[in-house]
Amino acid sequence: MKKVFSRPRSLKKVPFHYCPGCGHSIVHRLLAEVIDEMGLREIVIGVPPAGCAVLAYFYLDIDMGESPHGRGTALATGLKRVLPDRLVFTYQGDGDIAAIGTAESIHTANRGENITALFINNACYGMTGGQMAPTTLLGQHTTTSPGGRERLRDGYPIRLSEMLALTDGSAYIERTAVNSPGNIRKTKKAIAKAFKVQLDKLGFSLVEILSPCPINWRMSSYEACQWIEKEIVKYYPLGVIKDVTKRVKEC
């Protein structure tokens, strides 16, 4: 019988520990598929964050070096500078890349560091129990914004991807989501594109992935996917934010 679906080589035969309905397992699988399809397994080095995905090396059968909270892009800089012919990516949550690691993110992008950041945006701190994140929407209830995020007290949700697109060193930045089959396919394409940009040595690439966190959002998995579609996307629109390869073609 013809085999139409199987486990990617780069994904270990281990059940995910993630909560039901969580987007991490989907992104892990997409990542493993892209690594396999592009034949990158033997040259790829990943940098997992402090956050829900800290245990990514339990699932991905690739080289990975754990980073202190927020410092992923700096650590990846060290790896890439020593081994410029390897493919280096970070896997970071919103708190990691857009709060504690903001300085590192901006300066890594601005240096045009030839690495890829996968930025999982679930609008809260998942691992620590659903506290307010820099990306938490106005009015959104979290354990540290119990009455909903309030702009006078908590400020606004940050659009890190747009900020990084302003740096001259960033080459490719796209925002996607993993809340529907169509968006999942787009996410996979975006990851592959970001890796291609790195292999072509064009500079910093990033894919921001809106990802459901139904447990901390106090929703069912279905409702969480719907909420991304109806609410989050309004503030964080999907699509390509920056792509220097297009610009090159136009010229």
Binding site: G65, P68, R71, L75, A76, G78, L79, K80, R81, V82
Partner: peptide
């Protein structure tokens, strides 16, 4: 942290 990355490599 760049030192950490470089050392890992």
């Amino acid at each position: 942290n760049m030192v950490i990355g470089g050392s890992m490599a």
